[in-house]
Every structure is written in structure tokens, then in C-alpha cells.
Simulated assay, not measured.
Amino acid sequence: MAHDDSVLIESGLQVLKRYASRGETLSYDDLHRELGDPFKGADVAVQVGKLCDDITVQHSKATGLNLMISVLVRDSETGLPGEGFFQLAARLGRLPSTGDADAKRAFVLEQEHRVFMVFRPVKADTSGFAPNH
């Protein structure tokens, strides 16, 4: 892992789980602010990106799920995760290394859907009828 700070990784994971439970994405700047602006200097975006990689790797190891939970963190200009996200996906064998923008968008949508399926709360049956047994 690029970060030795397991507390920061866990805090970042909790932020991502909260956003996932609401079906929302956030920017790299949003995540940085949510964590209390832990990084300083000109390369804040790079540091946040590395943290996102660490969060994804840690979450996958802990759960056994092949989810790219950091798919929720997006570049505010492109609406997609940064290039490091796709490089990590390739290293983990989840996406072949590609420059194809359509393939990247499709992968992002698929991962986002999977993350939301895992973390969005199940809606209670509001029909008023008891389930059949």
C-alpha cells in the first residue's frame, strides 16, 4: 500500500460506504474535504488517488468482493475516475488495459452498479400485505 495510515484508509472507506448507501458519487476534492484535508502540497490529487487505490485494495482483501469501491470518486471535469483507477483495475485483472473511452465508461457504470447493489439499503415492502409463506 502506498499509505501506511490504516486510519485514513478506514476513514476513506467509511466515507465511500456512506456515499454508496445513498447512491451518490463524489469528487476527489470532496473526498479530501470529507477526510479533513489530510494532504498538503501541489500533488493533493495524486495523493487522494493513491488513497483511493489503497481503499479499493483493502476493501477487496477484507471482503473478498471484486468491487472497485473507489469508482465513486470522480474527476469533477470528466465525470470519470482518474487514470490511476483504470491502471489499478488492470493490475487487479478486472479490466484489460485499454485506451478505449467507451470501454472505460462501461466498466465504470458496471462497477458503480455493483457498488450500489452492495451498499444501498434494501427497501422495505410497503404493500401492507404480509409475505406469503
Rank of each mutant, 00 (worst) to 15 (best):
L109G: 12
H113R: 15
G93Q: 14
R74K: 15
L80M: 15
R114F: 04
G41L: 02
L26T: 11
V15F: 07
A106I: 11
A90P: 00
A42N: 13
S6E: 15
G84T: 08
Q111I: 02
V118G: 01
L95C: 07
P38T: 09
P96L: 01
E112Y: 03
Q58K: 05
G36E: 11
K123V: 13
I69R: 05
K40Q: 11
C52I: 08
L67P: 14
G79M: 04
G82R: 05
P81I: 00
G36L: 10
A106C: 08
E112G: 15
G23F: 07
R18M: 09
D4F: 08
C52G: 07
P38F: 09
L8K: 10
K123E: 05
F85L: 07
L8C: 07
R120F: 03
A45G: 04
L13H: 14
H133E: 10
S21F: 03
S11W: 02
F39E: 01
G23T: 05
A89N: 08
K17T: 12
T126C: 06
F119M: 09
V122S: 11
E24H: 11
S76M: 05
G64A: 06
A101R: 15
F129I: 12
H3P: 12
Q47T: 02
S97M: 07
S6Y: 09
D53M: 03
A20Y: 12
A89S: 14
T78A: 02
H59I: 01
F129L: 15
L16V: 06
G99S: 13
Y28W: 08
G41H: 06
H133C: 11
G93F: 15
D37H: 10
V108C: 09
V73F: 01
Q14C: 12
F86Y: 15
G49N: 09
A20H: 06
G84Y: 02
S11L: 09
D29I: 00
L35V: 13
F107Y: 06
L65V: 04
E34V: 01
A124N: 10
Q47E: 13
V118R: 11
M68I: 04
R74Y: 00
L95Y: 10
A89T: 14
L35M: 13
A20R: 05
Y19T: 03
I9F: 07
R74P: 00
I69G: 09
Y28F: 13
E110M: 13
D53F: 00
G64E: 05
D54C: 06
G41I: 05
Q47V: 03
D54K: 02
D5I: 15
N132C: 11
F116M: 10
K123C: 03
C52R: 03
E10C: 07
D54A: 03
L16H: 12
D4E: 10
A42L: 12
M1D: 14
L92V: 00
G79L: 03
L67Y: 08
P96K: 14
K40L: 05
V44A: 02
K40I: 08
A62N: 04
L95H: 09
V108T: 11
G12Q: 12
V48H: 01
D29F: 00
Y28G: 02
V122H: 12
D75N: 12
D30Y: 09
D30A: 12
